[in-house]
Design a protein around this nucleic acid. Structure first.
Lengths: 362, 362
DNA sequence: ACCCTTGCCGAAACCGGTTTCGGAAATTTT
DNA sequence: AAAATTTCCGAAACCGGTTTCGGCAAGGGT
């Protein structure tokens, strides 16, 4: 039938050892009042009989199910999707080191995510949660804080008090991108921000602006495009940037999916990516390696991120204060073909574009 | 602290209603011996007091944790990775309809997967499992069968007895691909098989061969390349096919990732995809839409697959016999630019390739 | 009016672990 | 050698639900 085969219970084990189940339990959980000798006897018998405690039977008394909760918002722009396998692998492998597992749910909106977080924590399907893709103002955080449920952020947020978090320093990457382009001769560098409301969007924008300052470049609002998180929006944003009288000769994209559209926009104007217009982006999606030229971008190690998040969350659940559970990682620059030395000045570029636009309007 | 806030237990609820907890429990679980009136009273009070039973407290008596188990093999070629988000969303949403959740783990090999399946089922972290990417001869199936743990296959396998499964008819897609190409004038149609040992590889190959027969085309072993599941292997397989004296004018790839390499191989010979050589592939990965011409391919609805699998598995756990839990879906053809009418005969194509090869060897 | 159902709920056992408490035996101290 | 500790394990309570069983009261049949 569908019944799962007969298990050996702690009582079976105790009986076969001539001990009581309380002794067996304490032996297996390394209590100090069990002699080394019986501890070993019990341990050996347990493996010999292939005894494995039911996690939910343990949970009823301990209150812990040894499970990490993760609620994904699938309606979100799919900037994070390609990473998902790595991210999940990182979480589950690190969790497995502590005998924990991952409980996964998907939500269709932010409020749906809150509903699921509350449901999962109340049914105790998970002991704590990883919150991916943080917003500047994040209702999930408010909800978990109110319910006193342990959690850790993947990203940072406006009110970081009492929060544990892990994040990649996107702002540093953006700074470096500006410096790299400036060193190659570019002085008009455009920027395409990421998804509105996300904390990473603010950070990367700050990084871009800091980069300009550090390289003594003027901040020009005209060089900051509309938010773009997918191909279409990236296309539109790039067209708009390049349509200006004084267009950027290089563009930094906050997310790779926008860069995909930037390629199309640049080509639609008869220009060559990496020669007439440079692009540096952020994320490291696999599509970037299929483009020609391949996309120069800052890649995030999402497996590593997942592993660190799991580790930190487990420590959080075990009682460590959030203040000491904060880590930051760096993105790795993939130096590929979509950026290069300045070949055309902004004026020359503008002239070339105007010529093209006159001939055929896209 | 890290303590999750005070809950209301079934005793609290019972006390506030002036009933015993046994009555409350039966009322909430729709037992017949509870009057409609008290059933409603209890239900209302439960929602009013925001009572949610602890899933593990229920599980201790019922034996069910209401969780679907899924063990992913991350070392596998990443043909399925882009689908992961959709696949998981499908599973979790369908599971949520029955108040179930998903417990996820990742394995590094097939034997590691077996280890995890046994561990998770013994600890009862899940009530049953979805087995993705079935092999012709699958040790996971053997293990779960032996342990009498409910499971469902995503795919089919050699010994299908007593198995519940959901699958996409890849063999039908391959048949149709042959017919489509034949209708366009192609008579020498190459085939690149997928990963060795997987059941889908056998099925798609069978479909290709059936397609040839149905269109009265001769089966030529020279037209079947080595297995290829990634860009590099796809490149090599395609080069080999095209290096023959009588090369195929169209190539069918079992997986999109191989097609990515096929594009490179075709171009390396100075040929144009979709004109000199046609390609039809299978999977529907997002990279296909970034290529130019866009990849013609059979796309799989993995969200739907996940949803059906979850639904069927839950019914399996509840005791339905596996024989009535079998479903098959169809892939959807994305009619894009990588295939087209025959322009060069096989001989002409060979001549063109030879010319190119003389000039520069890749 | 009496018996027999039927409807409805309480009492208690139960699931498989963990944890507290107490006490006997072994060891150390005086 | 007696007293005071320590060491180590058994007994039992407990966690928060579900399920079985029994019994009271109301309703129906004759």
């Amino acid at each position: 039938m569908n019944a799962i085969g007969k298990r050996v219970t702690i009582d079976d084990l105790a009986k076969s050892l001539g001990l009581t189940k309380s002794t067996v339990s304490r032996a297996l959980n390394d209590y100090a009042d069990i002699s080394e000798q019986t501890r070993l006897r019990v341990r050996n018998a347990a493996t010999a009989m292939n005894y494995r405690p039911l996690s939910h039977a343990q949970a009823i008394k301990t209150g812990r199910v040894r499970s990490i909760g993760l609620v994904l918002q699938v309606s979100e722009h799919d900037g994070h999707r390609p990473f998902l396998a790595d991210f999940l692998a990182g979480i589950t492998e690190a969790a497995a080191d502590h005998d924990w597992t991952l409980t996964l749910a998907t939500a269709t909106s932010a409020s749906d995510a809150v509903r699921l977080l509350e449901k999962l924590s109340q049914e105790r399907k998970a002991d704590g949660f990883i919150l991916p893709r943080t917003y500047i103002d994040d209702i999930r955080i408010d909800a978990l804080r109110a319910a006193q449920v342990p959690f850790i952020l993947y990203g940072r947020t406006a009110n970081i008090a009492d929060c544990a978090w892990y994040d990649i320093a996107g702002e540093v990457a953006m700074e470096q991108a500006v410096a790299t382009l400036h060193k190659l001769g570019h002085s008009r560098i455009g920027f395409i921000p990421g998804g509105e409301g996300y904390n990473y969007t603010k950070l990367r924008r700050d990084g871009y602006i800091n980069g300009l300052e550090q390289n003594k470049l003027a901040l020009d609002d005209q060089l900051i495009a509309d938010n773009a998180v997918n191909k279409q929006q990236g296309y539109a944003a790039t067209r708009e940037l390049l349509a200006q009288p004084n267009p950027p000769t290089a563009i930094i994209c906050s997310v790779d999916h926008a860069a995909l559209g930037a390629y199309g926009a640049i080509r639609s104007l008869g220009l060559r990516v990496g020669q007439d217009v440079s692009i540096i982006s952020y994320d490291g999606i696999p599509e970037g390696a299929v483009l020609s030229p391949e996309l120069s971008t800052y890649a995030v190690d999402n497996k590593q991120a997942g592993a660190r998040l799991a580790e930190l969350l487990i420590r959080r659940v075990r009682g460590e204060p959030p203040q000491q559970l904060r880590e930051i990682g760096q993105a790795r620059f993939l130096d590929r073909g979509s950026h290069g030395p300045l070949t055309l000045s902004s004026d020359q570029l503008a002239a070339k574009i105007e010529l093209k636009s006159d001939h055929r309007e896209e």
